[in-house]
Design a protein around this nucleic acid. Structure first.
Lengths: 218, 218
DNA sequence: TTAAAAATTAATCATTTGATTTAATAATTT
DNA sequence: AAATTATTAAATCAAATGATTAATTTTTAA
């Protein structure tokens, strides 16, 4: 009867398994991943996976939670920074997303797919809703709309637009590369361009002269 | 040895299987779908699936191809219509996407996930690249940039923005609903709002006063 | 009506896959 | 060094799953 290994010891193999699992799970998703894939990727025997993590699902939960948390944490810090303006926050978020996703392009599709596969499992414990609703950023957005006498665009739209413009290209990467006829490098260059462009676009949404043909500005 | 049934006959069961397959595949993806799920969804014996379609993979390929083609076809028509302006095309695309995806919200994540799982299998035969590169829309975009003396924003950015702003909310639906604290109905209302907003936003990207209020429209 | 063809079903096969067991090896303790 | 414990590997199990078979029912058409 194998005892469960203590936390401190055998850090190395445990981490090897987690790294392999992170790679294979984010690349192929839970259902398409075989525990044997993970063992092979880690260069370790299959039995170790269950020895250290009891089951595929438990290992997956750990990976999923960690991935999601890392992904959220950096954003939460940015949106609650009381020292930066709204525009600076948007710049920072866009910049951080693009830098992170250039290195780990699989993460968003992974998170989205797995949340969809079992929404209540992951949706409950994140508290994403509060993060945004109570954020300093949301306050700033609403104040700015007042100050500018601009008709208030739901802050959710703005946040959603920032995420859409930034994250979607990575999610739909193979399709986008194909439509644009881009190599991996050209795609990354384009995303670097967008680091500058997206904040400009978002700004122009908030303080718009943008209402084109039918409504003349005066 | 069972003969392969002729095309005309037993339309009903064949269609029942395809409908069931369409539903389950788009909902759960290829890997997470069991052929038994499809049989049950169709209310039919498992063996019929292989009787009519030989294998899970062959059935899947049919569903995938059809789904993708329907999705592309309507867009290709719009972007090559020589009677409409660029702005009208964008309005139409956004509108059609949102209407379609409100009814079939699973389609984009399905297509994206499965293309990612096997890019060469699906990417080759679509010819998406040509569709856009040779489109009347792209010509219009470039001409408009000239005429307006606007610095040319890569038409790919514009197309990508349109798709991002329109499709991403559906792809990330559970997360977006959670962040915004929205019910399914409220989410759909928001997407109806975006039907009007997205074309405005895109316009303001193309002919921008958007660079933080320093350039007046005349 | 009847014989052939096609459609449908229940039972079963073979492979895959998550998980376990048992034995061997390495590390640590006494 | 001997004993104990931790770690690793090979073999195997049991359930899930895609696919097939053989028997039965239904439909077609002569």
């Amino acid at each position: 009867m194998k005892a469960i290994p203590e936390i401190a010891k055998s850090f190395s193999t445990e981490e090897k398994i987690k790294e392999a699992a992170r790679k294979v799970f984010t690349q192929k998703g839970y259902a398409a991943t075989r525990t044997r894939d993970i063992a092979e990727e880690a260069g370790l025997n299959l039995a170790l996976l269950n020895y250290y993590f009891r089951s595929k699902e438990k290992l997956f939960d750990i990976i999923m939670t960690e991935t999601f948390q890392v992904f959220m944490q950096s954003i939460v810090e940015i949106i609650n920074d009381e020292q930066t303006t709204m525009n600076e926050k948007i710049e920072k978020m866009v910049s951080r997303y693009i830098d992170t996703l250039t290195i780990h392009p699989d993460i968003p599709l992974f998170i989205i797919s797995e949340i969809k596969a079992d929404p209540k499992k992951f949706m409950s414990k994140t508290g994403m809703s509060q993060h945004f609703q109570n954020s300093f950023l949301k306050k700033q957005m609403m104040e700015l709309a007042m100050a500018n006498k601009t008709p208030l665009i739901n802050p959710l739209h703005i946040m959603l637009n920032m995420m859409s413009l930034t994250i979607f290209p990575f999610v739909a990467n193979p399709i986008i590369q194909n439509i644009g006829g881009l190599s991996k490098e050209q795609f990354n260059e384009m995303m670097q361009e967008r680091k500058k462009l997206i904040p400009i676009w978002i700004s122009s949404m908030i303080a718009p002269t943008g209402y084109s043909a039918d409504k003349k500005q005066d």
